[in-house]
Design a protein around this nucleic acid. Structure first.
Length: 820
RNA sequence: GGGCGCGUAGCUCAGUGGGAGAGCGCUCGCCUCACACGCGAGAGGCCGCAGGUUCGAAACCCGCCGCGCCCACCA
């Protein structure tokens, strides 16, 4: 990359950093080819292309892989051990060796270096023209510094804040998760009809719930204010069954009269609606689900846990304490049945429940202290950024819009994991030993990156860690998107090389797949908006997925993953690239061997046709023949259209145009001029053909170069100096000049007549060599005139003795074969 | 429930107001001096359904059906 070029001369790409702990996948060759075609095209158009490559080695995938591979586990409470040596570890027989976070990061870098090699090998083989000197990893020092700097600036401006609040929580990973990482799954559940007794003894009410184990967390019942069935009940008190807590019946718009009995139980917390009700109706909290997903022991009788029957409540609670939600549910159902509060039989249902995308059990809502980045106040601005961005294809913008519109809370960026970029803050410890979360201690930017578990804030010493009057480090790490959302800034060396940064940012292109619009794309837009007040790039090119031949998404668990190296070995990189580039942006594409074979055939055809064209020795001559000129005129149109398509990120269309012309070129034009090029009509007509052939070949090779870099470079090396990938993209000037006054019809009409001759021979089941006695062409005067210019070529190509033309309204070709 | 995309030959797909197409597969023929990893040709389609606009609709509008995806606070 030539960094002396100005922003206008540069085309900058925010290359996706692949997750190196994942496996190689044909999806990689697919979407990365889309980007490489763009890069090669822009380069030939004269742009200085900034095309970096990063490796995403930050996050859960790496954490798990490093753990398993080395037999260690990250323990941020440990200090950095500079003498750490894997080979001299005392390994406990029963588990993993705890290591500090800085040591864990070193192991990660060591392991991912191997994974990166595998990716690099694949990418080089595929012919990706990325700049191997512009690399980064998402856990390296530079990326950590950028992530922490961005965070501290948000903190400074009050855009990042910490608060203790209910958030979505995965009980297996034991971490908070963000809305963007949540997915719906349909699972088996059970509806229970449960009776609540009124505290005044004037009857009972019924609710329906799929989570009876949360009855001890029930703090109210709720009905819609317009629901007349319950209008007299609102304001009254009911007793929770089994636990005897006195809870009010309240009214709220979100209660749906259509659901269940129209009366719902508000628990702290069963789902996000509960959180809304709890907050807006200012209800107390009775939290019973613990961070590991089990039910907490009884607190009945304590302050805030009033019950009309504390002993009974405690007994009931102790029946379920320590049980995971599912088991507790069955137990509570039994208890309700025994106490007569269960109405009828529980009904099995299939219902939609929220899961962490990597998780195995439904998410719980757990109150915990987390870091958030403000997004809710910015919805309108973010929607405007989405409109400002040029989406390819345009309809993908709708996914961004619906995501932003549906945001229901600020971005929860903290994770209770061990590996990742730590929050660069400490908290003062008060004299009583409690932690003052309201006044975090931040390091100066010049000190970044830091690890608060090993580093010490200014004005403190290590022995004050955790001590009254001392400090503690923030134990959490950032969401993996907290780092990758800065990929343009990281690659462009934000704040570390301002000269470079201003030449690159905002970038031109973000290529990625559609499944991470709500995460990677959204967070990148958000960060750039907050920090720089601009989009991070002007274009987003969204690739589809690769599906298996049965149109199912490929995944390791389904065992239908195709290994890209195998495919490259079998068909060659050009063939695989052809298949990828043939798919339009945004469209999910099935992987089929047959489709890849077509690309291989094209590449081989280019090789053979080129060998043929270049087999004719110069001298070249002036391009004077009307057929030659006509062909070049048509080629100029193709160049123009293909260029327009590529400018508009429509790779598939450009490839299709070049390919269609090329097949006609070999099937018709080469056959038509072959004899003349051999000199059947003397040196000057031959020179015209040879010159036209070479000009067309030169143009076609460059048209194909972004798609088929290997075969085009090979042929280029036969007769030209330097790399084809450094030559300019073909323009129309040379073609127009050579075509001069040509009528584009000549090529078309000649090819049509030749086709008719071939058809007649094929239907007669004779060899194409067979001589034709006479061909009679009936057509309009205009077409007959241009045909006349190609008569000799046509007769030689079709081995036609006599060509007769007649004017007629109904175009036809009569082919007279000799009698058998 | 809302939104987006898709529905064209056996398969994969292109085609957006005026002749229904490509490649693969299938069938037939051809060792034609670039290519048998090739060449030539053929068969094969109520363009999802039903209305409307238009002189004219695969395309534009309305409705419906089917498939896929995205989003949503379904107790």
């Amino acid at each position: 990359f030539d960094r002396t070029k100005t922003r206008e001369e540069i085309y900058a790409i925010d290359t996706p950093p692949p997750t190196v702990s994942g496996s190689l996948h044909v999806g990689h060759v697919f979407s990365y080819t889309h980007t490489d075609v763009v890069a090669r095209f822009r380069r030939m158009r004269g742009k200085e292309v900034f095309y970096p490559i990063g490796w995403d080695d930050n996050g859960l995938a790496t954490e798990r892989r490093v753990q398993n591979y080395f037999g260690v586990r990250c323990d941020p409470s440990l200090p950095f051990d500079p003498t750490f040596d894997l080979d001299r570890l005392d390994r406990p027989d029963d588990g993993a060796v705890p290591v500090s976070r800085p040591n864990f990061i070193q192991l990660c870098e060591r392991l991912t270096a191997q994974d990166e090699k595998a990716f690099e090998e694949l990418f080089r083989r595929l012919g990706l023209s990325v700049d191997w000197t512009q690399t980064y990893t998402t856990i390296d020092e530079h990326s950590r510094r950028a992530s922490q700097r961005a965070f501290l600036r948000l903190l400074d401006r009050g855009l990042a804040y910490t608060v203790e609040a209910p958030t979505m929580w995965d009980v297996d990973f034991r971490t908070a998760v963000a809305q963007a990482e949540i997915e719906d799954r349909e699972i088996e559940g059970t509806y229970h009809h449960v009776r609540f007794d009124r505290a005044d003894g004037k009857g009972t009410v019924e609710i329906e719930t799929s989570r009876p184990e949360l009855i001890p967390a029930c703090v109210a019942l709720v009905a819609n204010p317009s629901d007349e069935r319950y209008s007299s009940l609102v304001g009254k008190i009911v007793l929770t069954p089994l636990f005897g807590a006195e809870v009010p019946v309240v009214a709220h718009e979100l209660a749906d009269p259509e659901k269940g009995t129209g009366l719902a139980m508000i628990c702290t917390f069963g789902d996000i609606t509960d959180v809304t009700w709890w907050r807006e109706l200012r209800l107390p909290a009775h939290v019973v689900v613990q961070r590991d997903g089990t039910i907490a022991p009884s607190r009945w009788g304590e302050k805030g846990w009033d019950s009309s029957d504390p002993e009974g409540a405690t007994r009931a609670q102790n029946e379920i304490a320590g049980l995971p939600a599912k088991k507790a549910r069955r137990k509570i159902a039994e208890l309700l049945d025994a106490s007569g509060h269960l109405v009828g039989e529980p009904e099995p249902v299939r219902h939609v429940v929220k899961f962490y995308e990597k998780g195995e059990r439904p998410l719980e809502v757990v109150a915990s202290r987390q870091w958030f980045v403000k997004t809710m106040d910015l919805k309108e601005e973010l929607l405007e950024r989405g409109r400002e961005l040029r989406w390819h294809p345009a309809y993908m913008g709708a996914r961004y819009t619906s995501w932003v519109e549906g945001l229901n809370g600020d971005w929860c960026v903290s994770r209770q994991r061990f590996f990742g970029v730590p929050f660069p803050v400490w908290y003062p410890v008060r004299a009583d030993g409690s932690i003052d979360h309201e006044h975090p201690l931040a390091p100066p930017e010049s000190a970044l990156p830091i690890d608060p578990s090993s580093d010490v804030p200014d004005g403190f010493t290590e022995d004050q860690r955790g001590a009254p009057g001392g400090f503690v480090g923030d134990p959490d790490v950032m969401d993996t998107w907290g780092t990758s959302s800065l990929s343009p800034q990281i690659a462009a060396r934000w704040e570390e090389d301002e000269d470079l940064f201003t030449r690159l940012f905002p970038m031109d292109l973000r290529p990625q797949a559609h499944d991470i619009i709500r995460t990677w794309l959204f967070y990148t837009v958000l960060k750039a908006h907050l920090e720089h007040g601009t989009l991070p790039w002007w274009n987003a090119a969204i690739s589809g997925w690769v599906l298996d031949p049965d149109r199912k998404k490929m995944s390791k668990s389904k065992g239908n993953v195709v290994t890209p190296i195998d495919v490259l070995e079998r068909y060659g990189a050009d063939a695989v690239r052809y298949w990828s580039a043939s798919a339009r942006l945004g469209v999910d594409t099935a992987f089929k061997d047959e489709q890849i074979k077509i690309g291989r055939r094209l590449a081989i055809k280019i090789l053979n046709a080129s060998r043929f064209v270049l087999s004719f020795e110069a001298p070249e001559g002036a391009i004077a023949d009307p057929l030659d000129r006509s062909m070049l005129r048509r080629l100029a149109e193709v160049v123009e259209e293909a260029t327009r398509a590529l400018e508009d990120y429509d790779n598939a269309r450009a490839l299709e145009l070049a390919e269609r012309f090329f097949w006609g070129f070999t099937d018709d034009y080469l056959e038509l001029v072959k004899s003349r090029a051999y000199g059947s009509n003397g040196p000057e007509p031959a020179g015209s053909a040879i010159s036209a052939l070479r000009l067309a070949l030169d143009t076609l090779l460059r048209l194909f170069a972004p798609f088929l870099p290997y075969v085009t470079e090979e042929v280029w090396s036969w007769w030209r100096r330097g790399s084809i990938h450094r030559t300019p993209w073909p323009g129309t000037d040379a073609l127009e000049a050579a075509a001069a006054d040509a009528d584009p019809l000549a090529y078309e009409v000649a090819a049509w007549v030749l086709g008719e001759v071939r058809r007649t021979k094929a239907l007669a089941k004779v060899s194409l060599k067979t001589q034709v006695e006479r061909v009679v062409v009936a057509d309009s005067p205009e077409r007959l005139t241009v045909l006349a210019g190609a008569e000799r070529d046509l007769r030689e190509a079709g081995n036609v003795r006599e060509l007769v033309t007649v004017e007629g309204d109904d175009p036809s070709v009569e082919v007279v074969l000799p009698r058998a």
